[in-house]
Design a protein around this nucleic acid. Structure first.
Length: 993
RNA sequence: GCUCGAGUGGUGGAAUUGGUAGACACGUUGGACUUAAAAUCCAAUGGACAUUAGUCCGUAUGGGUUCAAGUCCCAUCUCGAGUACCA
């Protein structure tokens, strides 16, 4: 019997599907274990071999846990709202739902071929109305909540209204907007409904407000901070500008401290935690209030260095700061306005590109130092960000490099408030050993004490207090797109109203065009049936809008991260139509035990999901404060591109760079000659080629003549190569010349300079796997040629899960060969080889060594080393000619998480008629590994010279005596007397001297 | 700039608490089988020197601790990831 992997894999994939082998029950006496993968966005390109890496790892873990007797939840679904499908819809008119469905079907086909143990009965799709009903439901919960700082959790908005009615808002300790008016209970009651709603919006956890947003004109939408990379959009790389718009926001800042603190409670990779910590950006300092001369307004600033308050020599406001217009003097008005206009026009990218250019303008106004009462000039400058702190800084040029540079540029005084520090060249930002000087009551104090005293004194005069500031901004939650969740919101008198949860889902309306409307409204503005009837409680035709019973609906949709912020909970009970999930389901499954996915989601999905989880926890909806106990980032698989060396230019060099007579450079030629990698350094050949290929441009001809005249002394190399599709190249880096020639018209007449044996070698380079680099390998083609089990093993064998590593199909013959060898251990041409033979001592030793190592490896997520362990085990059992059924049964279970198809088949061949999936994992028995002797390495001065087999029960002295008497020891010492002999029983012997 | 991570054969990588560096594979070379190829099997494979025995060098670089360092400490270099005027 041969190892016919295609037949075996198809057979068991069908078996698993038909028998629902991996369906997880919500009621079970077994202990639960929840293994989750980050669900994919189903793109049109399908999966390449890099994508399933994490899925294979999690699948191995899930299968291992089933062998250990756990009830395992291992679901999969799709993050199916998103930009690519919509961009495609704009170009082709194809409804994104259709594109998405096609792509999902393709993904499913590809996933099925790899043999994952997913419980497909629990699949979710974020774009499915049955799913986004609950996204909308959570949105409503957030709208109806506020954050109470006293109880340190989210509460229903009704408790806030009760407080307002009782005592107004002066005593309320809430996370809210900064600029809230103070009112009494009587005033609250006197406000009209609209005013009350406006005020409540300033407290709600999701709120509508005019905010400065990142507007991407090319995509026609706003973007969140985490969707912008290096000042351009993450998708498409379009430029982004700052713009004020009315948008839904999520008050994630309310949870900043808890998001930070609870990082300590979860087992996530440190780099990921670090990047969340940086993103949240907690800084401790003080807020200080400055009076403005001749104005009643005050300016609040945040500073981390209140100890340097006597070093303030000017203030800088962000150009967008609201006080700028008020305080600017008539003389300075023109200059200030010109500056504001100039900065507003600059895109984020431009701003970031030239951080070094210092710019600003003087407002003509002065603030008053809270202690010295000295006038302080007020400037504006775009190095101050409107969005951070209060959008204003007290500038201390002696202690902050940016302030220092600004002061130098505009010739502002730089008073020194540090003892014995020279600030003539640069600012002194160090805190630790700093002692304050020239600062009245702070003189002579070290940083920490000065901090405390400064805050104390500021509080005493009512000009400031200690404060903690976070970099984390509230998250903009509106997108001007079609393919996203609609908001369950209609507008009455300009104020947002929630649609009652019992009428959800509010499904996406049909539109003719997926572009913004002519008046610049989002795509939903094109919908004709998009109004809410409060009588019928349904979506009706826009023409019926009367603003009495029928109102316009929200035109924005939700961002991509909405649906992915709670899907892990929905998997617990995905088909529930009455609730987001049943109490039974959530109480049984609780949280994710193992979550595997890419580190690129560190500050997006993973932060938002933690935020929603905490909110749902506060509301008593979920029992856990954090949704995933352990998280692992799988590394990226890069491609190994193949380059065919084409003579399209020469690089020439004579002499050493910088010395007399040096002559070097490059020029282009037109040729269709290709040179094998093994010969691309053959100077004689290259020189002949150079001679035969005269360039065309004047400069190049000059260089050509120079080289020809003195060709002996030149070193020639060819300039570059062209990508060849990796499928044309075999394991030995040899190109299929015919396939390459037929690939493209331009290669038809190509001429090839081969190796001496007639083959043509390509050169290799590691690059990102991408279509444009012709290095994409799809899992389907691998499954077809080698089988899913070979693929699964090879992906793990490549290296540590967390590391990024290059894919090279050539190596897969190693794991494929292993599977054939494994098969032959059980079966040969005559059928079964296994017998009831009693296992030998060696058999048992090999098996138990393997059990121990594999179990440890899986627990440590070191899957690459367990593949090696299997190979060693099979090599050993083969040479032991092991036929013992007892050993082979255990081995099949060990291999089953990694190569489930072959394991199932062997299990059946061994005589079992149920799946191997829940067969108990073999128990490790240490007694089989007990050794009576050890082959000691004998070192002289730390260098191993020979090995010596000695019984393990020898004492230190006995070992020493035996070794010293050994003839090789005497030969090594050559009569020298050893100074010292180190004996570590069971480990090593080292002779010094 | 700051934060984090990583540098080991031709290649992917192994070495769990300091204790035989290079497991296991790929590739390469030689051999067996075959008309031939594929497949399979066997052997060799870090470098240098040496007929053999063996010797020397070797985990990015330079120091240090130790009987013993890929592993620990100090300094430097290179690469990768994240972040970027955060007051």
């Amino acid at each position: 019997m041969n190892y016919d992997f295609s037949k075996i894999e198809a057979k068991w994939q069908k078996y698993w599907a038909e028998n629902q082998t991996f369906k997880a029950e919500n009621n079970s006496d077994k202990e639960k274990f929840y293994v989750l993968d980050m669900f994919p966005y189903p793109s049109g390109a399908g999966l390449h071999v890099g994508h399933p890496l994490g899925y294979i790892a999690s699948d191995i873990y899930a299968r291992y846990k089933r062998h250990q007797g756990f009830n395992v939840l291992h679901p999969m679904g799709y993050d199916s709202f998103g930009l690519p499908a919509e961009q495609y819809a704009i170009q082709t008119g194809q409804h994104p739902a259709i594109t998405t469905k096609t792509n999902i079907n393709r993904y499913r086909e590809q996933l099925d071929k790899i043999g994952f143990s997913f419980d497909w009965s629990r699949e979710v799709r974020t774009s499915n109305p049955d799913y986004y009903k609950w996204t909308q439901w959570i949105f409503i919960q957030l709208f109806n909540s506020w954050y109470n700082n006293d109880t340190n959790k989210a509460e229903d908005i009704s408790t806030l209204i009760a407080l307002f009615e009782k005592e107004g808002n002066a005593t309320v300790n809430a996370i809210s907007d900064e600029d809230i008016i103070v009112f009494t209970a009587d005033e609250w009651k006197a406000f009209d409904t609209k005013k009350q709603q406006e005020l409540l919006l300033q407290y709600r956890l999701t709120y509508l407000a005019e905010t400065e947003v990142n507007w991407c004109p090319a995509l026609g939408t706003v973007l969140a901070n985490d969707e912008i990379i290096n000042g351009v959009s993450e998708r498409g790389g379009h430029s982004v500008i700052r713009k004020k718009m009315t948008q839904w926001s999520m008050r994630i800042s309310a949870y900043a401290q808890r998001l930070l603190d609870d990082l300590n409670t979860i087992d996530w990779p440190q780099p990921l935690k670090d990047s969340q910590t940086n993103w949240i950006g907690r800084s401790q300092g003080a807020s200080v209030t400055f009076n403005v001369k001749d104005h009643k307004e005050q300016i609040d600033v945040f500073t981390t260095r209140p100890d340097t308050i006597f070093g303030v020599s000017f203030m800088t406001l962000a150009p967008e700061h609201e006080l700028v217009a008020t305080i600017t003097t008539p003389e300075q008005k023109q200059e200030v306005e010109a500056y504001i206009q100039a900065t507003a026009k600059r895109s984020e990218r431009e701003r970031m590109a030239d951080v070094k250019t210092i710019s600003g303008a003087f407002t003509g106004a002065y603030a008053e130092h809270p202690f010295t009462k000295e006038p302080i000039p007020i400037w504006i400058g775009d190095y101050v960000l409107a969005g951070y702190g209060t959008g204003a800084v007290m500038a201390v040029p002696c202690g902050d490099q940016r302030d220092y540079d600004f002061a130098k540029k505009f010739d502002i005084a730089i008073p020194n408030v540090f003892e014995g520090v020279d600030i003539s060249e640069e600012a002194h930002a160090d805190k630790d050993k700093t002692v304050i000087a020239n600062s009245d009551f702070l003189n002579g104090l070290p940083y920490k004490k000065a901090m405390k005293l400064a805050i104390y004194e500021l509080e005493k005069i009512g000009h400031g207090k200690g404060k903690i500031n976070y970099r984390l901004r509230d998250a903009v939650f509106s997108r001007q797109r079609y393919w996203g969740e609609p908001f369950p919101v209609y507008y009455l008198d300009g104020m947002p109203q929630m649609i009652d949860a019992k009428h959800l889902p509010i499904t996406l309306p049909e539109v003719e065009k997926y572009l913004p409307t002519e008046t610049g409204e989002p795509p939903l503005g094109n919908a004709n049936v998009w109004a809410w009837c409060t009588k019928e409680n349904k979506v009706v035709d826009n023409s019926k809008i009367n603003n009495e019973t029928i109102f316009p609906l929200e035109l924005n949709t939700m961002p991509g991260w909405a649906g992915s912020s709670f899907y892990f909970n929905r998997y617990m009970d995905p088909n529930n139509t009455d609730a987001i999930f049943s109490d039974d389901a959530i109480n049984y499954w609780q949280d994710v035990d193992l979550y595997i996915g890419g580190s690129e989601h560190a500050t997006g999905h993973l932060l938002y999901a933690r935020f929603w989880q905490k909110f749902l926890f506060d509301k008593g909806v979920v029992p856990k404060n954090e949704f995933a106990k352990k998280l692992i980032n799988q590394g990226m698989i890069t491609g190994t591109s193949a380059f065919v060396g084409r003579i399209d230019g020469f690089q020439y060099e004579r002499g050493k760079w910088g010395t007399e007579g040096y002559y070097g450079g490059t020029y282009n030629v037109n040729s269709n000659i290709y040179i094998s990698a093994g010969r691309s350094n053959d100077q004689e050949l290259l020189k002949d080629l150079l001679k035969a290929n005269k360039p065309e441009t004047d400069n190049a001809i000059k260089a050509y003549n120079e080289i020809i005249n003195d060709i002996e002394n030149f070193k020639i190399s060819i300039r570059q190569g062209v990508h060849a599709d990796v499928s044309f190249v075999n394991a030995s880096d040899e190109l299929d010349i015919e396939a390459f020639k037929n690939w493209r018209e331009e290669y038809k007449g190509a001429e090839f300079i081969t190796e001496e044996n007639g083959t043509f070698k390509v050169s290799r380079e590691v690059e990102k796997m991408s279509k444009s680099k012709y290095n994409v390998v799809s899992p389907d083609s691998i499954c077809e040629e080698y089988g899913a089990d070979s693929l699964r093993l090879y992906e793990m064998f490549l290296g540590p899960l967390e590391q990024s590593k290059p894919w090279n199909t050539a190596g897969i013959t190693g794991t494929h060969g292993f599977l054939k060898k494994l098969w032959r251990l059980y079966l040969d041409d005559n059928g079964a080889k296994f017998t009831d033979a009693t296992p030998t001592k060696d058999n048992l030793k090999t098996l138990h060594k393997t059990i121990k190592k594999v179990a440890e490896d899986i627990e440590n997520f070191s899957f690459n080393t367990s593949v090696s362990t299997f190979m060693i085990c099979v090599n050993e059992l083969s040479s032991q000619k092991c036929t013992s059924k007892e050993i082979l049964e255990a081995l099949a279970i060990l291999v089953s998480p990694y190569a489930p198809h072959i394991a199932e088949e062997l299990w059946e061949q061994l005589g079992h008629n149920t799946s191997i999936a829940t067969a108990p994992f073999p128990k490790f028995d240490a007694s089989h590994l007990v050794e009576s002797s050890k082959e000691y390495p004998v070192s002289f001065n730390g260098k191993m010279r020979f090995k010596l087999e000695l019984p393990l029960d020898l004492s230190k002295d006995e070992i020493e005596a035996t070794v010293m008497a050994h003839e090789k020891t005497i030969a090594q010492l050559q009569g020298r007397e050893p100074k010292k002999v180190i004996v570590v029983p069971g480990k090593i012997i080292n002779i010094v001297g």
